[in-house]
Write a protein that binds this DNA or RNA. Structure first.
Lengths: 139, 139
DNA sequence: TGAGTGTATTATATCACTTAATACACTTAG
DNA sequence: CTAAGTGTATTAAGTGATATAATACACTCA
C-alpha cells in the first residue's frame, strides 16, 4: 500500500530493486499504455523527487534513461516531455515485449520445456486467470 | 565462447550478473534437465572453483543455495550430492517455471498486452523458431 | 528579475559481491 | 594413525553500483 501519487501517475517503490530502475520501468509502462498523452509534460525532476521522497539525482538518472529510449524529449528551462511520435512509442513497446518473450522462452527451455509445453502452460494460466477474474478473486 | 568444462558440466560465466547466481542457475538447469543423475556427486567446491577460475567462497555460496532449494544434500567430509528424490526435482522445476510464467505475464500486462495478445506473440515466435530450426539458421 | 527548468559536480555512505588467507571438523583411502 | 580431500566459518580487503547531500550553472519564461 505504499503508493505515491505524482500528478496523474501512481508509483510503488520498494527496496528489492534500484530506485531509479523502478521509476524508469513504471514510467515506461505508463507511456506504453498511453496513461500519459503524447507530447505531455511529465513532472519536473524536483517535483517527482519530492513526491517520491527520493533524491533529485535518482529521478534525473531515470529521466535520462527515458530519453536514451527515445520516449522523451528534454527542453532546457522548460522540462521533460513525452515524444510526439506515436510510432516511436509503439516500436519501443514491441521491442520491450520481444525482449521479455525471448528471455522467458530461453529460461523455460533451460529448464527443459519444449515449445508445446510452454504454450500449454501459458494457456492453462490464462484459463486460471479467467476464473479468478470472474468471481474466484472475491473473498 | 568462454566456456569452462567441469566434469560432465559446461559453464558460461560473464560479468553481467553475480558469479554465484550464474553458477546457481546453470546448476539448477542441469539438475532440472537431468544432465546430472539423481544421487550423483557434483564437483567439490575447490575443484569447481579452480576449473571456473573463481574463489571457493563464491562456489560455496552457490552450493548452499542449491541445498536451500532442496536439490542437493551435503555430507561432511564426503561432498555434495544431488538429491535422490525425483519428486523434489520435478516439483522444483514446476515451481521455477510457474514463477517465470507469472513474472513474464505480469510484465507483458504492464505494457498493456492482453492475454490473447500474449498467447498470439508466443505462438508467432514458436513458428519463427520452427523455420530457423529447419534450415533458416544455416548460412 | 526571479522562479522554475534540466544538468553537472563533488563528497560521503552503504551495500552486495568477490577475492584472499586461514582454520576447523569431518570422512576416507593408504 | 596419517594424509588428503571434503564442506564450512572467519576475518580482512577491495570494488562497483546505488543513493543521498549540497552546490552550482545555463536555460526559459512570466
Amino acid at each position: 500500500m505504499d503508493e505515491r501519487q505524482v500528478g496523474s501517475l501512481t508509483f510503488r517503490l520498494d527496496l528489492s530493486q534500484p530506485l531509479y530502475e523502478q521509476i524508469l520501468k513504471q514510467m515506461r509502462s505508463a507511456i506504453a499504455k498511453g496513461e500519459i498523452a503524447l507530447g505531455e509534460k511529465i513532472p519536473s525532476v524536483r517535483e517527482m523527487a519530492h513526491a517520491l521522497k527520493v533524491n533529485p539525482n535518482t529521478v534525473s538518472h531515470a529521466y535520462q534513461e527515458l530519453e536514451r529510449d527515445g520516449l522523451t524529449e528534454t527542453r532546457r528551462g522548460q522540462g521533460t516531455f513525452i515524444t510526439t511520435s506515436r510510432e516511436r512509442v509503439q516500436q519501443f513497446r514491441r521491442e520491450l515485449a520481444e525482449r521479455l518473450l525471448a528471455d522467458f522462452v530461453a529460461q523455460m527451455q533451460s529448464l527443459g520445456y519444449t515449445w508445446d509445453e510452454i504454450e500449454h502452460c501459458l494457456h492453462t494460466k490464462k484459463k486460471e486467470a479467467a476464473v479468478h477474474g470472474r468471481n474466484g478473486g472475491a473473498l
